[in-house]
Write a protein that binds this DNA or RNA. Structure first.
Lengths: 266, 266
DNA sequence: ATACAATATTTCATAATGTGAAAAGTAGTT
DNA sequence: AACTACTTTTCACATTATGAAATATTGTAT
């Protein structure tokens, strides 16, 4: 920087010689479902960049189709090249490849939708989803982010985090999504302890009312929890008496995927 | 550059002050379904970058999770953040938002899968897909790229290109995907002329044997063709006698979407 | 119409950032 | 143990990215 030597808050351990790239990525990460379009001034402010710098970086991103502009408003949006890259990233994801056949079987056995999800910051990212054969309940969630504390998979993945990292990840109060959402950090921590013991967890109406999911962790050859799978559906079908059976199937499938990744139980 | 002042071939009109970002994006674009994993040396060579530069840029991309590394091979792969960004890009795509309800109706009316696609270089990118209710024929193609010359939507989109751009886009011979694929550029050009007259086009087994699709163009308020929609299914169901009816429905839906975008016929 | 406000874009002097050749490290193989 | 192929670190250097200020553009109120 030339003059305004800003203090590098939330510093993502910036590597030397990559300022411009890191900044360009920060611009891309500013876009979300909640705010899919930005004007230059606001976006520069939100990312802490000089307006000129943001403009230049966005021009580069636009030239490569990673961002596009709304011809009416002049606002910036994510571009089509990102859709293509996202598709490539998803199809080439090794976790997804290893788990897909097992998810298909699981969804079939349970008659409910099965998903593969992993943790990105404090959100879970849906990497794959196999819809149930049931007429209803078809969510098209792949590529979507959901708040970790309100999902079964999220609780499984958070439970695997070291305490220090968990503290950093859940600083403030937890967002309430339904009246069942766990908003008390103490309560969540207790639940995470339980997950570590049980090896699975249920989320009942915590993300959206009437939606129940059961999740279990997937581990790699270093016994690291790298993903979680879940089976979910309406509470009318996923009744309490069915949950033990479902949980067993989810856990078994998770273990199968783990074995695919080189995990060896014992 | 310091010493090796390379000539800027396939120069994508590089803007000043964005070299590093443009190079980082070039690295990301090197990944494909055919080559989802690269080692450093090959990737640097393929992108024409110095190995050290590629390494540094990849480190920055890795820190932000746009690329990940295969722990076994040490190879580079596209990362999970790109899956998330791709999802956001897709869900916030204005074209997709405008066309979704119309695609749903179209798929229902035809009893076949309907898609929204747009041109990215010489490929069509599947931006949305509504599966048919038919038991079979469920392709999970969203985010996928297909060669434009072998698809109905691709022919529609190529037909809208100015001749000069078309020449630049189709320099060499066309890839043969099936025995029905149009591989003769003359033959393709003739077909494109036909599309401009008819306002729709059929691709019959040109992408994969036994798959038939009908496509029509979507235009924006400046009368620019910005996308194409299609209805497709197995040739056993999409028989020649049904095609006129299907074509009419596809064209009507395309016009409806165009009107959503501010297009006014006349 | 005209002035005003808000935002986008261009310019340009400056040095900090990104660069790449060379050296050092790390597997994997014969 | 010596070789090979690859990754990672180091470092001197200047090209490239930077941001304040000026200008252009767009939209809104008067």
């Amino acid at each position: 920087m030339l003059q305004t030597k800003e203090i590098d808050l939330h510093a993502t351990e910036t590597y030397p010689g990559t300022q411009a790239v890191a900044r360009a990525i920060a611009l891309l990460k500013a876009f979300s479902d909640a705010q899919p379009e930005w004007n230059l001034t606001d976006l520069a402010q939100a990312t802490g960049l000089n307006k000129t710098t943001a403009f230049r970086l966005l021009a580069a991103l636009e030239a490569e189709r990673l961002v596009m502009r709304n011809p009416l408003s002049g606002g910036y949006r994510l571009g089509v090249e990102l859709i293509a890259m996202g598709g490539t990233a998803m199809r080439s994801n090794p976790l997804r490849a290893a788990s897909r056949p097992i998810l298909v079987t699981l969804a079939e056995q349970c008659g409910e939708a099965a998903t593969l999800e992993l943790l990105v910051e404090s959100y879970v990212l849906v990497v794959d989803e196999v819809a149930s054969n049931h007429p209803m309940g078809m969510t098209q969630d792949v590529g979507n982010r959901l708040p970790a504390h309100a999902t079964a998979t999220g609780k499984v993945l958070l439970a695997a985090l070291p305490d220090a990292q968990l503290d950093a990840m859940l600083p403030g109060p937890l967002a309430r999504l339904t009246d069942q959402t766990i908003v008390d950090p103490q309560r969540l921590r207790a639940e995470l302890t339980q997950v570590r013991q049980d090896g699975f967890v249920v989320a009942s109406g915590e993300l959206e009312p009437g939606f129940v999911a059961v999740a279990a962790p997937v581990q790699d050859r270093e016994r690291q929890v790298v993903a979680a799978i879940s089976v979910g559906g309406p509470s009318l079908r996923l009744t309490p008496d069915r949950l033990p059976e479902i949980a067993a199937m989810v856990q078994m499938s998770a273990r199968q995927i783990s074995r695919q990744l080189g995990y060896w139980p014992g």
